[in-house]
Amino acid sequence: MSTAKTNHRDGTQIVADPALPTILISREFDAPPERVFRAYTDPDLVVQWLGPRRLTMWIDRYDARSGGSYRYVHRADDGTEYGFHGVFHEVRPSERIVQTFTFEGFPDGVSLETAVFEDLGGRTRVTTKSLMDSIEARDAMITGGMERGVREGHERLDELLRARPSGKADRRADTHADRRTETES
């Protein structure tokens, strides 16, 4: 799928450079960088927006700090589970997150992701660059559902930011029911 740029009505841009094993994702949000960054790093918020609507998410661990790690799982209605994990290499509040990302269904396909949070005066542009091992691995990620998950996740993040103007976490009981610790897995 070595393709160029795809846009979506919500403003999400996804670019796969035909010559490089990269994906560049850019999106603007109607909230300041501090609020958007918190939605990316607070597990109580992450579980509310990350990924496709049709999947339920639970977090095993999410320690969003330099040197921290994460693992979460998306589950389909039929019980199929999709696990993801990685390490946070650099977390600079309201500015930047550098992390690895691994889909457990393809454990040799580790990507390095850098997300930059740009202040647009009350709005935030998040630009994420993912570097994969090969163009084939990049194309497999794109055709495997990444585009849909990113777009729907961005839509859900918009909804969360609008519903929670103060940036406070939604502390619903069902959110916590989906969170498990490593020892419970």
Rank of each mutant, 00 (worst) to 15 (best):
R171K: 09
P33S: 05
P32G: 07
D170P: 06
G145K: 02
Y82M: 15
T12V: 14
D178W: 12
I142R: 06
A177K: 14
D174N: 09
T128W: 06
L120I: 06
E182L: 11
E155V: 15
A137Y: 03
G67S: 06
T22F: 06
P21R: 09
I23Q: 15
E90R: 09
G122I: 01
V47M: 01
R53L: 00
A64Y: 05
A137M: 11
G144L: 05
D44F: 07
A16E: 11
D108C: 07
Q13G: 11
D44V: 03
V46S: 00
P165H: 01
R75S: 07
T12P: 08
E155I: 12
E104Q: 14
S185V: 07
E90M: 06
A31N: 06
A115T: 13
T12M: 12
R172A: 13
S94Y: 13
F29G: 00
L55Q: 07
E184T: 08
G153E: 01
E136F: 01
R71F: 02
D10P: 07
S69V: 14
S185C: 05
T3A: 08
G83H: 13
D178P: 06
E118W: 02
T181I: 08
G153Q: 02
D174M: 09
D30Y: 00
P93M: 00
T41Y: 09
R54I: 03
D60R: 12
E159F: 03
A4L: 04
T181Y: 08
K5I: 13
A4V: 02
E90Y: 03
T114D: 05
E90K: 09
L45S: 09
I135F: 01
P43S: 08
P93N: 02
D119E: 05
R171T: 11
F88Y: 15
D63S: 14
R138T: 03
P52A: 08
E182G: 07
R172F: 00
A31W: 01
R96N: 08
D119W: 01
T143Q: 12
D10V: 14
P18E: 11
L120W: 02
P33A: 02
D78K: 04
T124S: 10
G11F: 15
M132E: 05
M57W: 04
F88G: 08
A16G: 11
A64H: 07
I135G: 03
Q48H: 06
S69P: 01
S69H: 10
V91M: 07
G122A: 08
T181V: 07
L160P: 02
W49A: 01
A4T: 06
V116M: 10
S69D: 11
L20R: 13
G83P: 13
